[in-house]
Deep mutational scan, measured.
Amino acid sequence: MTYKLILNGKTLKGETTTEAVDAATAEKVFKQYANDNGSDGEWTYDDATKTFTVTE
């Protein structure tokens, strides 16, 4: 399945997607991506749209 990440950071904004077997796997990928790019904030997940959002 395709999962989407929306970044609403102070310095990093945008979207990216990943293919993953489940939401937990996608979350690990996205959290590593956000960490690698210095983005940290409040995470939410919408199962209906398969979208993670991180807001700083």
Rank of each mutant, 00 (worst) to 15 (best):
M1C: 14
M1S: 12
M1F: 14
M1V: 13
M1A: 12
M1R: 12
M1T: 14
T2Q: 08
T2G: 04
T2Y: 07
T2S: 06
T2R: 10
Y3P: 02
Y3L: 02
Y3R: 02
Y3D: 02
K4I: 11
K4S: 05
K4V: 09
K4G: 03
K4M: 07
L5N: 02
L5H: 01
L5S: 01
L5R: 00
L5C: 08
L5I: 03
I6K: 06
I6R: 05
I6F: 06
I6T: 04
I6H: 04
I6D: 02
I6N: 03
I6L: 06
I6C: 07
L7K: 00
L7C: 09
N8I: 15
N8S: 09
N8T: 09
N8R: 12
N8M: 14
N8C: 15
N8L: 14
G9L: 15
G9Q: 05
G9K: 06
G9A: 06
K10Y: 09
K10S: 11
K10F: 12
K10N: 11
K10H: 11
K10I: 13
T11L: 12
T11P: 05
T11W: 13
T11K: 10
L12T: 11
L12A: 10
L12N: 10
L12F: 15
K13H: 10
K13T: 09
K13S: 09
K13G: 06
G14A: 13
G14N: 09
E15K: 06
E15A: 08
E15W: 14
E15L: 08
E15V: 13
E15R: 06
T16Q: 09
T16Y: 15
T16S: 07
T16W: 15
T16A: 11
T16L: 15
T17L: 07
T17R: 07
T17E: 08
T17W: 13
T18A: 07
T18N: 03
T18G: 02
T18I: 14
T18L: 11
E19W: 15
E19H: 12
E19K: 13
E19R: 13
E19A: 07
E19P: 04
E19I: 15
E19C: 14
A20D: 02
A20M: 02
A20F: 04
A20I: 02
A20S: 05
V21G: 08
V21Q: 11
V21H: 11
D22T: 04
D22I: 01
D22A: 03
D22Q: 02
D22V: 02
D22R: 01
A23W: 13
A24Q: 11
A24K: 10
A24L: 10
T25V: 06
T25F: 06
T25S: 13
T25M: 10
A26H: 00
A26S: 01
A26M: 01
A26V: 01
A26P: 00
A26K: 00
E27K: 10
E27W: 15
E27T: 03
E27Q: 11
K28C: 08
K28N: 06
K28G: 06
K28A: 13
K28Y: 08
V29C: 07
V29H: 10
F30E: 00
F30Y: 01
F30R: 01
K31H: 07
K31F: 05
K31M: 08
K31C: 05
Q32I: 10
Q32N: 07
Q32E: 08
Y33E: 02
Y33P: 00
Y33W: 14
Y33V: 05
Y33H: 04
Y33L: 06
Y33C: 04
A34Q: 03
A34C: 14
A34P: 02
A34S: 04
A34W: 12
A34T: 08
N35T: 13
D36K: 10
D36N: 09
D36W: 10
D36A: 12
D36L: 12
D36S: 10
D36G: 06
N37E: 06
N37Q: 13
N37S: 09
G38Q: 07
G38A: 07
G38K: 07
G38Y: 10
G38P: 03
G38T: 05
G38C: 11
S39E: 11
S39C: 15
S39R: 09
S39P: 07
S39V: 15
S39W: 15
S39F: 15
D40A: 12
D40P: 07
D40K: 13
G41M: 11
G41E: 03
G41I: 04
G41N: 06
G41Y: 13
E42G: 05
E42T: 13
E42I: 14
E42N: 09
E42D: 11
W43A: 01
W43T: 00
W43R: 00
W43K: 00
W43F: 04
T44D: 07
T44A: 09
T44P: 00
T44W: 07
T44R: 08
T44S: 12
Y45K: 00
Y45I: 01
Y45T: 00
Y45S: 00
Y45R: 00
Y45N: 00
D46T: 04
D46H: 05
D47P: 14
D47L: 06
D47F: 07
D47Y: 08
A48C: 08
A48P: 06
A48M: 11
A48F: 10
A48W: 06
T49E: 05
T49G: 03
T49Q: 05
T49K: 06
K50Y: 08
K50S: 05
K50F: 08
K50G: 04
K50Q: 08
K50C: 05
K50M: 09
T51S: 04
T51M: 03
T51F: 01
T51G: 00
T51D: 00
F52Q: 00
F52V: 01
F52A: 00
T53L: 05
T53E: 04
T53M: 09
V54M: 10
V54T: 02
V54Q: 03
V54D: 01
V54A: 02
T55M: 07
T55F: 08
T55Y: 09
T55Q: 07
T55N: 09
E56W: 14
E56K: 06
E56V: 12
E56I: 12
E56L: 12
E56C: 09
E56T: 09
E56N: 07
